[in-house]
């Protein structure tokens, strides 16, 4: 993979459900080893866009490429670690059993599986709760376990849909430093968020509202180009000025 090639390349992507246009002509690029944030209120089309970019759903128009390959393509799913907005966990099973299940789906076995399970559970600070059943987990713990599962097979692209909801500030900080460490190791991260201050931590940011991409740039560039002080003010500016 050449280094200047983009990880995700979306060109004129549109999506309609029946007659309703949910996403309209979105073009964006996610570069290697950066954290790209999709910022927008709920209902703006973030999750739909994420599903198109990961190849779970198909575009109505336009094209999505991941590592140069047109999506959807089954083999590319191996390159992606996906964390859905809802905690998709088997609550009757223990955390370990959940991890083992998903590890097997990615074809991981033997000592590598064991080591990776330890590692990812340390990252999300759940090392001591490995054998607990998931229905005894709190909401924040479930969120962290979902993140751990997404990290499990060391994907070069991480797609995280609202990853830090319900996680306490201290732990959120440590997760962010882990994500930055992954960036440093070459992992590309695409995440959605509706929290403005969290958006500022992303390398680059796409602002999305009513299914349209308003602007995409680094947080500081977005703020200065709008002539504002904060991301929130900039979002209002790009969104057409009304508050």
């Amino acid at each position: 993979m050449s280094h200047n090639e983009s990880v995700i390349q979306a060109t004129h992507v549109g999506k309609r459900f029946g007659k309703k246009m949910v996403l309209n002509d979105i073009s964006l690029e996610v570069r290697p080893a950066e954290t790209f944030g999709l910022l927008g209120p709920s209902g703006s089309g973030k999750t739909t866009l994420v599903k198109l970019l990961t190849g779970i759903d198909t575009v109505s128009s336009g094209e999505v490429r991941i590592f140069g390959t047109v999506m959807p393509k089954l083999s590319m799913l191996r390159q992606i670690g996906y964390m859905a907005q809802s905690d998709a966990l088997y609550t009757e099973l223990s955390a370990l059993e959940n991890l083992e299940f998903f590890a097997a789906l990615y074809g991981m076995k033997g000592p590598r599986r064991k080591i990776r399970i330890r590692e990812v559970m340390e990252i999300v600070a759940l090392g001591d709760d490995l054998h607990k059943r998931v229905d005894q987990y709190s909401g924040g713990m479930k969120r962290r376990l979902s993140l751990a599962i997404a990290l499990l097979h060391e994907p070069p692209l991480l797609v995280l849909d609202e990853p830090t909801v319900g996680i306490d500030p201290l732990l959120r900080q440590s997760i962010w430093s882990e994500l930055k460490a992954l960036n440093a190791k070459g992992t590309t991260i695409l995440m959605t968020t509706h929290v403005m201050d969290e958006a500022e931590k992303c390398d680059r940011l796409g602002m999305i509202r009513n299914g349209a991409l308003l602007a995409a740039d680094t947080p500081s560039a977005l703020i200065s180009q709008a002539g504002k002080q904060t991301i929130e003010e900039a979002f209002i500016y790009y969104g057409g000025g009304e508050s």
């Binding site: 779970i56 089954l74 799913l77 992606i80 859905a84 809802s86 998709a88 966990l89 789906l105």
Partner: peptide, 11 residues
Amino acid sequence: TGTLERLLSTP
């Protein structure tokens, strides 16, 4: 529970 979607995001 969303696990189907999660399953289908794996290869």
